[in-house]
Amino acid sequence: MSVTQFMPNATIHLHQGDLPDGISLGASVAVDTETMGLEPHRDRLCLVQLSAGDGTAHLVQIIPSRLGGHGADCPNLKRLMSDTGVVKLMHFARFDVAILQHALGITVAPIKCTKIAAKLVRTFTDRHGLAQLSRELLGVEMSKQQQTSDWGARDLSPEQLAYAASDVLHLHALWSRLEALLIREQRLDLAEACFAFMPARARLDLLGYEVPDIFAH
Rank of each mutant, 00 (worst) to 15 (best):
S2I: 11
M7K: 07
P8M: 08
N9L: 11
N9K: 12
I12W: 01
H15M: 14
Q16D: 05
G17F: 10
D18K: 02
P20W: 06
D21I: 09
D21E: 14
I23Y: 10
L25V: 03
G26I: 01
S28G: 11
S28N: 13
S28A: 15
V29A: 15
A30E: 01
V31H: 03
D32I: 00
T33I: 02
E34A: 11
T35S: 09
E39S: 15
P40L: 15
R44W: 06
C46G: 06
L47K: 01
L50V: 07
L50A: 06
V60W: 03
Q61H: 09
I62M: 07
I62N: 05
I62P: 04
L67I: 10
L67A: 07
L67H: 12
G68Q: 05
A72W: 03
A72M: 05
R79K: 11
L80A: 05
T84C: 10
T84R: 04
T84S: 06
G85Y: 10
V86A: 10
L89T: 00
L89I: 01
F95R: 00
D96V: 00
D96F: 01
V97C: 03
Q101G: 00
Q101C: 01
L104T: 01
T107Y: 00
V108N: 01
V108M: 01
V108F: 00
A109P: 02
K112M: 06
K115I: 15
K119A: 07
L120Y: 14
L120S: 05
R122C: 01
T125C: 14
D126F: 14
R127D: 14
G129S: 14
L130Y: 09
A131D: 14
L133N: 11
E136Q: 06
G139D: 09
V140H: 04
M142H: 11
K144I: 14
K144D: 12
Q145S: 08
Q145A: 09
Q146D: 04
D150I: 02
G152F: 03
D155H: 09
L156P: 09
A164Q: 06
A165S: 15
S166W: 06
L169A: 13
L171A: 03
H172M: 10
A173L: 07
L174R: 03
W175F: 09
E179A: 07
A180V: 13
L181R: 11
R184Y: 15
E185G: 02
R187I: 05
D189K: 09
A191M: 10
A193L: 06
C194Y: 07
F197N: 04
R203S: 03
R203N: 05
L207C: 04
L207W: 02
D213A: 12
A216L: 10
